[in-house]
Design a protein around this nucleic acid. Structure first.
Lengths: 315, 315
DNA sequence: GTTTTACATGTTAACGATAACATGTTTTTA
DNA sequence: TAAAAACATGTTATCGTTAACATGTAAAAC
């Protein structure tokens, strides 16, 4: 491997000068700087992350933790993971993946996803800089980045109302997590703003449960009803049940939430609230690096986007 | 951080002796070894990967490359990725994820997934130990690990025959990749072995395409037909089309391939050939590490498993 | 019983990069 | 114009670990 010494030899300067050209270029005269930069190119020098890490007492390793049971992992995490990896690589960090909450001593920071309420106690006891994916209750004081869930369901509800569906209901989840509450609130607020009567149901986050729910209540669902679903998974079940009995989007409109994978494989394709993963990844990483470098603790919400497809009428 | 020197001090020996206890324990007397091991526990020593990497001229970094377009990534890769990460972590390696084929100088090895035929030329030009996920044409001489695709579709076909479906057809894919061919062969061979007439169709790997195909040919599909699908995605479309017109599994049996995610969200749940990801991960990693340490080049096939669910009759 | 040999342990140097300090040169200041 | 300050560059020591060599002691060989 080409190292600092090789560059130094080529440029007829000391290793230290080369190091300075790289890390503190303004401490070096213009003349020498150009000389060294040429030498760097000439010999194809690439800094050695390992040596840098050793001397800086850093590791340049960020751990991404997926706490949710690996078998039931949502495709969400995969996308997020790939995005995060790319962002970190650009910044010279390495991403390490783990499914358990036992940070090795060699990690500089943690990005935690798939956590449940019961994990938060343990998480706040860990003394490593971290950021959560997903809104956590404020009293834990844990920095998080999340999509603006409330805005998401609000967009969904507004879209259904504007598309002319006379009644709009909400199918949420039976999980005690902040984002579940936020998504429901987004629906309720928007309905109130339009002076419409709201109606919510809860199911577990499985398509089959949602399917059954619709079969049970279809008698009470007049035509021209819009359905806001807390997740694409729920929407998938809803679409399946409705399509067997009626027509989408003519008689019923359905909007999902997440915009990963499932929305593509339903028939008709789902109108959904898409999580902006690229942006989420960027924000997660910069949030964490800000903690590392400036010890800032921040909570951040990212705006989602409505993707109109075939499960709702054209406006 | 606790380091070798701390342990050495605690045990009243030199750093080198401690290092030896860890790396070459049989070069140390029993007595001292126990002493040092106690000291290690007492002070809570954990070896510093970075320093080790620097002195060993290794990086303990393996790069996992997902070449397939990030947006269309299958949930397969996520599962495989998580499994690989876990295996590597156990062996003291860090996993780095990338979506482009430009291995940094600091990676010790590559695990490549999602590649197409057109990538193989470039891959074989790269001078870093690597292993592919997915069977590659032998003339490239690239080591790979894959599920035994031929055996998979053979299991599927046999299952349908034994479940009493009189006619068994195959829906494959219009992609020129070895695994596509292998899956088709598994079906064809098994049909031949049972002296049955085989019939194959090709679609793109999208549920909507498969759905349309079934709608077009349903007239020629007598009741009591079994359908072997090249992927769960195709099976999803097949199930959707059939369910609209008839009954599963009474009149039609469907078997998918992959066993990730999609098989859970269809209705009825899919009978499928499940890829053993834990085992694939283990094999990929040990294949690669064998290259690193013993320069062995191997091609390995892992046996898949038939998971019986609700899209085929009970036998 | 002396010489070999084997074995257990310690010492030194090295991996590549950088902070802290040291040196030498130029510019500023009075 | 001599002293002080600013600037550019070089030297040394360090991060934590390990290979290679050095040393010392006990067992084996003759």
């Amino acid at each position: 491997m080409v190292n600092l010494a090789d560059v130094a030899r080529q440029a007829h300067v000391s290793k230290m000068t080369v190091s300075r050209v790289i890390n503190h270029p303004n401490q070096v005269s213009d003349e020498v700087r150009d000389l060294v930069n040429q030498a760097i190119k000439a010999v194809g020098y690439q800094p050695n992350r390992i040596a840098k890490a050793l001397v800086n007492q850093q590791n340049y390793v960020i751990q991404f933790i997926v706490l949710e049971d690996i078998a039931t992992v949502e495709p969400n995490y995969a996308i997020l993971l790939l995005e995060i990896a790319e962002v970190l690589n650009q910044k010279g960090y390495t991403l390490e993946i783990s499914t358990i909450l036992e940070p090795n001593s060699h990690v500089d920071g943690l990005i935690v996803s798939g956590w449940r309420d019961s994990d938060l106690e343990r998480l706040s006891a860990i003394n490593v800089p971290m950021v959560l994916y997903g809104q956590a209750p404020t009293w834990y004081d844990l920095p998080y980045v999340d999509v603006n869930n409330r805005m998401g369901t609000s967009l969904a509800t507004t879209h259904l109302i504007e598309a002319g569906y006379k009644k709009v209901i909400y199918i949420g989840m039976t999980m005690a997590l902040p984002f579940v509450w936020e998504r429901e609130q987004g629906y309720l607020e928007t309905m109130a703003k339009h002076h419409l009567v709201s109606r919510t149901y809860d199911v577990s986050n499985h398509s089959h449960d949602a399917e059954k729910l619709i079969q049970n209540i279809i008698a009470h669902l007049p035509k021209n009803t819009g359905i806001v679903c807390a997740t694409d998974r729920i929407a998938l079940g809803v679409v399946r049940a409705l399509k067997a009995q009626s027509q989408i989007p003519e008689n019923y409109g359905v909007v999902g939430f997440d915009g990963v994978f499932i929305d593509q494989i339903t028939s008709p394709k789902l109108t959904t609230i898409k999580q902006p993963f690229r942006q989420l990844a960027n924000t997660l990483v910069s949030n964490l690096l800000n903690q590392l470098h400036h010890s800032e603790l921040k909570m951040e919400l990212i705006q989602p986007r409505l993707v109109k497809r075939d499960s709702t009428r054209q406006v």
